[in-house]
Design a protein around this nucleic acid. Structure first.
Lengths: 223, 223
DNA sequence: GGCCTTGTTGTGCAAGTGTATAAATAACCT
DNA sequence: AGGTTATTTATACACTTGCACAACAAGGCC
């Protein structure tokens, strides 16, 4: 027979805590990215997202005008995080340009940037970019920032090597190097188990140095 | 008052023609790819697809067990078409290995392989590959076929140049070249208007030749 | 403590989803 | 031509979706 002080009343309203606006928005965005990575844009419903964030679906409308805006903010957050991590590898003040370039490549071709979840998100969102101007703009901004960073490092490296490329050559180098990093990134994310640790970075560094016409450094020569 | 031979009766059943099974399946797959490219996996409903194919939604179930199978067959068809087009550029019997490699790169970095719609489809589907084994397998097969082609051409080129790379070096060259092509392909699809015609192919050929340590051919030297 | 604001829940709803199935009809066979 | 088959349409159904809104309660303020 039921206890007089039933500890599990059936029709009790759910308890909750009021979190700050910043925290709730971040949690919801993170839950959105998780849901999209796991179920795709089709399976990421407001109820799924809310469940993952530990709230009920109605709350989302309190912080975002609609689902579309939530997805846009989530994608922007993803792009920001990716480019931020990538560029973080460039802040090595006491290193030679060439070392900085190598570190940049290495950082981009290892965890956490080589990551199946991030790739899945990137592909899912960018697949909609051609039909969604807002997504297209978010991508374009992140991409151009990335390529400008590449171009700046490449210019440093070539300057240190006494090369004097004109603007077109420099641009072409940046485009090619960007392609090498992107292409290897995709291969690593999609088939990470096919490569031994550090292998992708080694391939990338060699390919980039060939592109720039640099002789291999001693420390990377095979012994 | 209504005409006795009313030319527009309201509740008339829709006229239709019986097409062959092969034709109907192909039409439905094409309509699926169109819908996914335009509206994404979320917006590509059976009714949308059927409308585009010129049939009613119920018919889809007559040719496919369910929506999932239709999407899988559509993706397989897409991958097949992409790899087929790419490899078609390799059948030049009377050309030198190096010319064949250059033609391969050129073909992959121009229309119709550089195409926003194809890219959108590729990204949309591959974004689900990590969560859908069937999609992952379709991708893996197409990708490995592509990379094997690359590796074979690279081996031909290096043999003609009297180089003797070991298996690891050959594999690394193939991975790097594959990355260059993929990366430039993405850049071209996403921002085609940023490149002049033939520019991507020129960048790609130069990058690949640098990767392989080949001296530029006269015909490609700047005048 | 009691009140007030507003973050949060819960319910409701119209629209759309994939699937199942009955009814109709185009095309083939003899 | 008439009968048969199976392609195609049309309708029904249970379910999910995004969104709207009313009720509630957590936490700050006096």
């Amino acid at each position: 027979m039921p206890d007089a002080t039933d500890p599990a009343p059936m029709n009790e309203r759910r308890k909750f805590r009021r979190e700050g606006e910043e925290r709730r928005r971040q949690d919801l965005i993170e839950a959105t990215l998780d849901s999209v990575a796991e179920y795709g844009l089709q399976g990421a419903s407001l109820r799924t997202i809310a469940l993952r964030a530990g709230v009920t679906a109605g709350l989302i409308r309190h912080y975002f005008p609609g689902k579309e805006e939530l997805l846009q903010e989530a994608y922007t957050a993803l792009v920001d995080r990716m480019t931020e991590q990538a560029k973080a590898a460039l802040v090595m003040d006491d290193a030679s340009p060439r070392q900085r370039l190598a570190a940049f490549i290495t950082a981009n071709l290892n965890a956490p940037i080589i990551d199946a979840r991030v790739f899945s998100l990137w592909a899912t969102f960018i697949g909609r970019a051609s039909a969604d101007p807002a997504l297209a703009r978010a991508h374009r901004e992140g991409y151009l920032g990335f390529r400008n960073e590449v171009e700046a490092v490449v210019a440093d490296v070539l300057a240190a090597e006494q090369h004097k490329p004109d603007a077109t050559q420099l641009r072409h180098h940046a485009i090619a190097i960007n392609a090498i990093i992107d292409g290897l990134w995709i291969e690593g994310c999609l088939a990470g188990e096919m490569f031994s640790p550090g292998e992708l970075a080694a391939i990338g560094i060699k390919a980039v140095e060939s592109e720039l016409g640099l002789a291999p450094l001693e420390q990377f020569l095979e012994k």
